[in-house]
Structures are given as C-alpha cells and as structure tokens.
Amino acid sequence: MRRILLLLFFLSSLSIVAQNEDDTVVGELTATVVNAQSGFPMVSVHVINLNKVVGTITDQKGKFTISATVNDTLYLSFLGFKSQKVRVTNDMFKFEDTEIALTELAYALEEVIVRPYQLTGYLEIDVKNLPINNAYQYSISGLPTSYEGGSKSPSAVTKVLGAILNPADLLRNLFGKKPKQMRKLRQMKEDDDIRNLLASKFDRETLTELLQLEKVDIEDILNNCNYSRSFINTANDLQILDAISSCYEEYKVLNRK
C-alpha cells in the first residue's frame, strides 16, 4: 500500500513539473487574423506584444509571427475595426491554425455644419471678426523654455514658479509613480512596427495599453511638460510618444540632480 502511495505521489509530481514547464513556453507564435463578419484574412493588421513591447503586421494571408511567452497579452489593431487583446495560451504554440477574429466598427456620422468666416474684404473689419488665440506664453530670463497659459490654463504662472523653485517636482509625481511603464518608452521608440502604428493613430488607445496609463494621465504629463492644448488635441500617437519620451529624459536628468 505504501509503495502504491509513493508511486501516485511521484506521478503527480511529474505532472505538476510538466505543467509548469508548459506554462513557461517561449518562442515564435504564429496565428491568423480574420474578419469576424466575412471570415476573410486581414492584411496589415498591427499586432503588439504588450509584455515584450515588440510588434509586427499580418501578411497577405493574414498570418503573423511574433515573439511571445505563455500568458503574454497581444494587442491587435486595425483602422475601422475594434481593437482586441488576446492572452497567449499553450495551445496557440502547439497548433498553427489559431485564428483571431476582429469585429468591424459601425460609425454613425452626425451632420456637420461648416460656418465660414464672414469676410468683407476690408482688412480693418475682417481682423476684428477673426478669433483671437488667448494662449499666452510666459517666459523668464535664464530659462530655456516658455510656458503656455491662457484662460483654460490658470496654473501657468504656478508652473513657472514651480520650475524655478524645484523643476524636478513637476515630473517626479508623474513619472516616479510608474517607473516600469516609463522604461518601455525606449523599447517602443526602437520598434518600427510600433512606431508606424502610432503614426497612424490619434485615439491614444495603443499608448494607454502599452504604458498602462489612463488618457488623463497622458494629458497631465504633457501639460506639466509645457505642451500646448492644441498639440495635445491634434498630435498623432507617435508625436505624443516622442513628447513623453523627451519629457521623461528631462525628468531623469533633473532627478539625478
């Protein structure tokens, strides 16, 4: 009886070890992305491994190959389709016929009324009718950068004074709380597939997934790094990434001091 119990214990231990080994599968994962409605393969879908911060795109047959580990998260994005996150499992390595379906988004376009400026042809009158940009620039002698203010930015003067008293404080509260996410910035900038994806997007969704930040956090970072509201609203995701990266490099220099 004792021998039987020992044998069962030995077999169960082997099973646990084998399972642990399966859970740490690392390699090149191959799968196919298809249209959920038609079933046709989708070309040029961007696929990003959020854990390893590497990216790729699907080929003419909808296939992609990417470096991955079990339990990594893949982020798939394509214009006009709902972005999707997929967790990597053991069977995705064992079988190369894995399919990932993306669902097309339905956009309801609202009526847009274009109101052109009512120009008269007289310079003195037309100048008065044009909108005025109230985004003032505050600058102080000795500081290399200026600080944008305006009616919607009452803290502009506070930013200037804060930069004089202790410049690192403006960034430490933002970057210091998320050092792991900020370390991904360099990896993101070096991957051409990720950069090409970000250059075509303006919704900040990919950035929030990669950096594990909320959209409001991204706006706070750029506000504290003296980027204007117009830049924050109109820049593509790659420009936002480069802006955050340069601001982070500035933070690291100030933090050393």
Rank of each mutant, 00 (worst) to 15 (best):
D59P: 03
I113L: 10
E209M: 14
S245E: 15
L143Q: 11
S38T: 13
L197N: 08
I100M: 07
E28C: 01
L130T: 03
Y107S: 08
I66N: 01
A235C: 07
V160I: 14
Y122L: 09
D193S: 14
S83L: 02
L207S: 13
L50E: 07
K63L: 05
N173V: 15
T65A: 03
S38P: 01
S83W: 02
V112E: 08
T234M: 13
V45F: 04
C247P: 02
V43F: 14
L198E: 13
Q37R: 08
E205W: 07
I4Q: 07
V53N: 03
Y117D: 00
A18K: 06
A108S: 08
R195Y: 13
A168G: 00
M1G: 12
Y117N: 07
T234C: 02
K82L: 13
F231K: 09
K215G: 03
D59T: 07
S141A: 10
L102K: 09
S155N: 03
E249A: 06
Y107E: 15
E214P: 00
V17R: 10
N166S: 12
V88C: 05
L207M: 15
E124T: 11
L7R: 08
N223I: 06
S38N: 04
F78Q: 14
A31P: 01
K177E: 13
R3V: 09
I244L: 07
R256P: 00
E209S: 06
Q60Y: 10
N166H: 06
S141R: 11
Q239K: 15
F95G: 01
P41K: 09
T58E: 02
V54F: 11
Y138V: 07
E99Y: 07
P116S: 05
V160S: 06
L174R: 04
S44G: 01
N255K: 15
L165H: 07
K184V: 01
K180L: 12
I194R: 03
I164P: 00
K178A: 11
Y75I: 00
L185P: 02
Q37A: 12
P41C: 11
R204C: 02
K61Y: 11
K189V: 14
D191C: 07
L11N: 01
T89N: 12
I125R: 00
Q19L: 11
L6R: 08
A101M: 09
P154M: 05
D217K: 08
C225Q: 06
Y251S: 04
A106W: 11
F202V: 07
Q181P: 06
N233L: 12
N196C: 04
A156N: 01
